[in-house]
Design a protein around this nucleic acid. Structure first.
Lengths: 152, 152
DNA sequence: CTAGATGCAAATTGTTTGCTGGCGA
DNA sequence: TCGCCAGCAAACAATTTGCATCTAG
């Protein structure tokens, strides 16, 4: 049974690419991360392992890995500025951002499947990616707001 | 019974702003559009009505209108590059983009409510906006692909 | 009259591209 | 060896900001 990184390297080769040190390391970082990481954070971590690695390489590699179906990109809040990456998996993680304290809270949802089915049945669409992200107020900020309103 | 634009002008004033010609016109354009529009398209249309109006003003106005709860922004595809605007309404419109032909297909969904409830119950979060957008292959492009695969 | 709005040009930010030398299969 | 790849600098596109001028209330 091949390891994940062996299978990955095969997937890249099948797509006409090569498994390089940089790609190997990035994939390894993403696979072992306990949260989704963005390009800048990935660069920061990767620099400890390959000196001279560059943001351009990070971006190009992420695009290669995404095209090969190895990783998948998400946005963490409705003001979608940065992309965050995780391994391609069955039940992806989505995110809620608090408008007040900016804290990002991850959640899982099976709604992706529902949307996929609805769009297939109703409109004949074959869905590949669904983006779901929410913002609003976290519990603490709701309490703080209520507090402030009772004694203005 | 005040008209929509009268109520809008009051909402802006309550937020400490003023109802200017530019804001009035943009709101009117958005209110009467049959689809969501982005900043550039809004500029194009607004130029017919106010000469000299500028992209900066469009962006600043959109932010004011959004903060005042009058309009709401959405992305049309998972590669969230541009924002599109519509009036704030109960059942917002979401979008699917075909990866092949780039066509954008609008759809409605009540899943926003489900997500809102789930996040409230499970994590105590008060959701304000939910972004949902999907991409994949439209019906025609699925057929074309199947065609291509049967005779390579 | 005066805080707030406009318009112009210039800045910002996340990401992509062009090019040249370098390295994996 | 030979084409894909890495690294650098420069380009991009959507949006924001600084500043002087103008205008709604």
């Amino acid at each position: 049974m091949p390891t994940f990184l062996e299978r990955a390297s095969q997937a890249i080769r099948q797509a006409g690419g090569r498994m390089t040190e940089q790609r190997y390391i990035l994939l390894d970082i993403i696979a072992n991360a306990d949260q989704q990481l963005d390009a800048e954070r990935l660069l920061e971590i990767a620099k400890h392992r390959v000196s001279g690695i560059n943001l351009t390489t990070i971006y190009r590699t992420l695009n290669v890995l995404e095209a090969a179906g190895l990783v998948q990109a998400h946005y963490h809040s409705p003001d979608h500025t940065r992309k965050f990456y995780e391994l391609q998996r069955a039940e992806p993680t989505y995110h809620f951002t608090c408008r007040q304290c900016k804290q990002v809270i991850a959640f899982h949802s099976t709604l992706t499947e529902t949307i996929r089915q609805q769009l297939a049945e109703q409109l004949g669409l074959s869905v590949r990616d669904v983006c779901i992200c929410a913002d609003g107020l976290c519990h603490a900020c709701q309490l703080a707001l209520a507090e402030r309103e009772t004694k203005p």
